[in-house]
């Protein structure tokens, strides 16, 4: 007689809001299938109120995150990369399920990209800020400041690298983020949320919603307390609506450069300043 087969204990893929992992308040979930049609999991299908809660959590966390020293933010983000390394097997399996041709390369690139952006925390000010020559007795200088709460619509493909490439530059400068994960492959985003929860990133700095992109994007774009939206994952036909909604409070809209995500051109300090406000100060100088 053979031993009974063990039933594996599967993870419930939940939302990540304010450092916690709630189910959707709506109680909804949707099927996540692998590229070859296997049922991988039921992911939470975020509702309008989940989005509201996520924005509120991001707003509450923003001053504290921006108020940390850039050095400290950098250390925290390096640690995220360290913990991603420890979860490598899980990320690789999830990318393989999503149909990535080379999961190992995808995870390598995602971790390297995270580290690359983490390094910019304490460099972005001196490299992209600066002093300006002016024709008057003023010391005139410009510094990038975080814009506030950033909505990120992650690209549907490249579930990990695509997400990291959008998220890391957004939070480096002190923004907080509400991420709408890839709809077909949300599981790497859920795993990344679990990494963030166990690193030193304060709750609310990154909030991850899984669900239907077309449903969530208009609520995000229309939310008056969101300051910018990274629209990389917004379907083209939805863009006119998003632009109209975003115009209401003059949100910044930004999209990833159209290059191979593995190439060096896919990472740039300008991705950080795209979600910053450049503040220029005129300081009088005496004779």
């Amino acid at each position: 007689m053979s031993a009974p087969e063990r039933v594996p204990v599967k993870r419930t893929a939940k939302l990540f809001i304010g450092g916690e992992f709630p189910r959707s308040e709506s109680g909804r979930a949707y099927e996540v299938l692998s590229h070859d049609g296997r049922l991988l999991a039921w992911a939470a299908r975020a509702s309008r109120k989940d989005l509201r809660d996520a924005v509120r959590a991001a707003r509450d966390a923003q001053p504290g995150w921006a108020g940390r020293t850039p050095y400290n933010r950098g250390q925290i983000l390096y640690r995220v990369a360290e913990l991603m390394e420890g979860r490598r097997a899980q990320f690789e399996a999830e990318l393989a399920d999503a149909g990535a041709p080379d999961p190992r390369r995808g995870v390598d690139a995602a971790i390297d990209r995270w580290v690359w952006y983490a390094g910019w925390c304490d460099k972005v000010h001196q490299v992209l800020g600066g002093t300006n020559p002016v024709a008057a007795p003023y010391f005139n200088f410009t510094i990038p400041e975080p814009t506030g709460v950033v909505g990120i619509v992650a690209p549907p493909d490249q579930a990990l690298l695509g997400l990291v490439s959008r998220l890391a530059p957004a939070i480096v400068s002190g923004n907080t983020a509400v991420v709408i994960a890839s709809e077909p492959s949300p599981l790497p985003a859920v795993s990344l949320a679990e990494v963030l929860a166990t690193s030193d990133v304060p709750g609310g700095v990154v909030n991850v919603l899984t669900g239907f992109t077309r449903e969530l994007v208009p609520w995000l774009a229309g939310h008056m307390d969101v300051n910018a939206v990274d629209v990389t994952g917004v379907p083209d036909d939805l863009m006119p609506e998003v632009e109209a909604l975003a115009a209401e409070n003059m949100k910044r809209l930004h999209r990833a450069p159209d290059v191979d995500p593995f190439s060096p051109q896919a990472q740039s300090p300008y991705e950080i300043t795209a979600l910053c406000e450049m503040k220029t100060v005129w300081h009088p100088i005496g004779a």
């Binding site: 509201r52 924005v55 707003r59 609520w219 229309g222 939310h223 008056m224 307390d225 969101v226 909604l245 209401e248 409070n249």
Partner: peptide, 9 residues
């Protein structure tokens, strides 16, 4: 309005 508001306004 159907839109979530922010304290900036």
């Amino acid at each position: 309005t159907g839109r979530y508001q922010g304290p900036d306004y």
